[in-house]
Amino acid sequence: MLSLDNVTVTYDKETEPALSNLTLTIKEGEFVCVLGRSGAGKSTFIRTINGLQTLTRGAVHVSGKEVCQLSEKETRNLRTGMGMIFQHFYLIPRLSVKQNVLTGRFGKKKAYQNLLGLFSEEEIKQADYYLQEVGLASFANRRVEHLSGGQKQRVGIARAMMQEPYLLLGDEPVASLDPSTSDSIFRLIRTLHEQRNLTTIINVHDVDLAKKYASRILALKKGELIFDGHPSELTDKVYGLIYEEEALDQRAL
């Protein structure tokens, strides 16, 4: 359903590409975790999929369409089918939990409906349903600023689910959460993934989380794909390769 062909991204003023010649395919129903050090290109990779990041070379195809060739309207259409969650949640402040979840529908509605908050009864029911799913039903009318980090990420997930996505993207969704909250967030994502055969691609720092939940692991280093395989194939040797320099740096200190 998703393929990258020789994707290269070089940011302005930088000589080293953030992603170089990345070629891979992801099939429907996979749960992919992307490992790598900070700056390895994980975020850039995720963002090429929904067109938030433009490519320097190469092409990304999603369901047969080339992402970078789409018009603005087509890009919007593409994004409505892709839920995305972020490290810093990126919720809308001053709005309630439920209002935030409803913004997940923005891509499917007319401008005046969004502006005035005209949501159908069905959509409101759906928002309640997803809040229930993520365990925040009793927080529906609370303002999002007053939630804890883990709860905010649950709102982010409910917002993404509100899009009824066929693809869920996560850009370091647990990087600012404590270990046990991270695990429960991953468990939630895994459940949603299993219920709907939802294709999921998530960046993560924590190798153990990736091994525990993913059905396939990718590892990036300096923009290059250095590992692609089943979690069980991720040996200590590969692990060492991904984080090699970090170890060296620490020794140097």
Binding site: L52, L91, T103, R105, N114
Partner: peptide
């Protein structure tokens, strides 16, 4: 950040910016 989130749900540029 929130602008990026609104883009990601596929909202139009203006609506995303307003919210």
């Amino acid at each position: 950040g929130p602008q990026e989130a609104m883009k990601s749900v596929g909202s139009s540029r203006r609506i995303g910016q307003i919210f």
